[in-house]
Design a protein around this nucleic acid. Structure first.
Lengths: 262, 262
DNA sequence: ATTTTAGTTTCATTATTTGAGACTAAATGA
DNA sequence: TCATTTAGTCTCAAATAATGAAACTAAAAT
């Protein structure tokens, strides 16, 4: 009747997905009572939702400790999602190639609801952390990949995304106002690439460039990351031509693919 | 009333997950009518489910081509699932280590509903195909990782899993009867490791060993894979001590972790 | 032995899902 | 051009499933 609001639209399925998010947000196995605390559902309702999700394999239930965590079925579904995820699959060979040319860490990201969604990663030097990035989300206003995309959106899109940012100060270098960010975006747009000057994590710097299709539409972005201990800005910027070549090739291959929303 | 059967239990949420599976099974963006063909739901019901899932981000909708595919939200959820996925996270450092010691491809797998679920992969030689495995499922009866696990289950569990196998002949070497498989499993149990002698894919061979906890319970398995063009059985079997060391270390670290079901 | 806490079940009420059929728009064909 | 098929969307009364206050159980904690 009256305009409801909580957070999510949708009926029963939407509620179930909310529960899934709740559990995922913990980042560790949780008990039913813990989910109850953070969710706004009445106890029996939540109980049934959790059980249903567990029965369906969307949550895994550890019977011993009586805890829940995101289920294996998600892994299988995400495997398919990733494999057909247009930009990731189109970009793969080019990201591979760049990975062989440079020894630094490479990220491929897209915008998703104002946030950066990492969809691929290569780890030149260390073979660690393989799966750790794809599917991860991060802030847009203080990462190289985020700013690179933001800078090349249309003014309207740009404002819409800026309005979604939280402007949390991660480091002393984080840009924490829309004004500061807008000014920086102008520079980025002018020079064609973005830098992350330890804005998200102290000691971590990167160069990033947007992936644009023929019409100049932002599809995603690619970054090369390293630490201040291992590299210098001069050395990192030497990779710009390789990075440019990579994003151009991806943009070319993704010509007629259009990005689903911002 | 009468015993229903179709496939899935569950109410509305279960149906929605069924639709998700349907879409995933295609392995490519699909139109509504294609989903309609393979699903057993009436048109308007399916329509609403698909729309709901798309609204929730579980499916991505390409408005131009009017196609659906598994959504980005799944990627985010699976990212968390994988990160806390006990065996994968416990095993990670050990798999990393093995990856540095050998140049072949390494897989970490678990059993999930009678199938092999790959949860991690390292690709020694080529940096390609990074994401392509975790979340992937495969047959148990004709892969190294599958047979290694199967051989060390209790007899009851073993029979339960064997009953779930389809025994499709992938290559001339595939074992296609329960009897042949049982005989092979006995050998595997005796010698402590499993081989894949081109049973799943011609030209691909591997050695695999189960990850067991202190009580001898199967938690998963690890394999080292190569092609017949690049290696010989003698060369591959030389890696057995490294493999044994790896699975023992994982088993040790996973001591009190108990595997969720078979 | 008593109280508290965490998980589970019940069941009448309520809200959502259901699906035959109707409708629209666009593509196909004669 | 106009009929015809096809793909997608909408409607609404009927059928069904979800809801949640309250009660219950089991196991800790006091």
């Amino acid at each position: 009747m009256t305009a409801e609001s909580p957070s999510q639209k949708g009926g029963t399925v939407g509620k179930a997905m909310e529960v899934l998010d709740c559990v995922a947000r913990f980042g560790q196995p949780v008990r039913f009572s813990q989910i109850l605390e953070v969710s706004h559902f009445p106890k029996p309702t939540l109980y049934r939702l959790v059980r249903t999700l567990a029965d369906l394999g969307m949550l895994d239930h550890d019977a011993d400790k009586d805890t829940y965590m995101p289920g294996r079925r998600l892994l299988k579904l995400a495997h398919v999602a990733w494999a057909q995820f247009s930009l990731a699959s189109i970009a793969r060979p080019h990201i591979d190639r760049l990975g062989q040319q440079v020894s630094e860490t490479i990220h491929l990201a897209q915008l998703d609801q104002g946030q950066v969604l990492y969809v691929d990663k290569r780890n030149g030097r260390d073979p660690v952390e393989m799966y750790s990035q794809a599917g991860k989300v991060g802030p847009t206003y203080c990462t190289g990949v985020g700013k690179a995309m933001l800078a090349f959106l249309t003014p309207e899109e740009q404002e819409r995304v800026i309005a979604l940012q939280s402007f949390h100060r991660f480091t002393p270098h984080t840009l924490v106002t829309p004004e500061a960010l807008r000014a920086r975006l102008e520079t980025i747009r002018a020079q064609g690439y973005a830098l992350d000057e330890e804005e998200h994590e102290t000691g971590i710097i990167c160069i990033a460039m947007p992936v644009l299709n023929g019409s100049g539409r932002v599809l995603g972005s690619v970054s090369i990351t390293d630490t201040v201990l291992r590299t210098t800005w001069a050395a990192l910027k030497e990779k710009l031509p390789l990075l440019r070549e990579t994003v151009e090739r991806i943009g070319h291959d993704a010509q007629d693919w259009h990005y689903p929303g911002i």
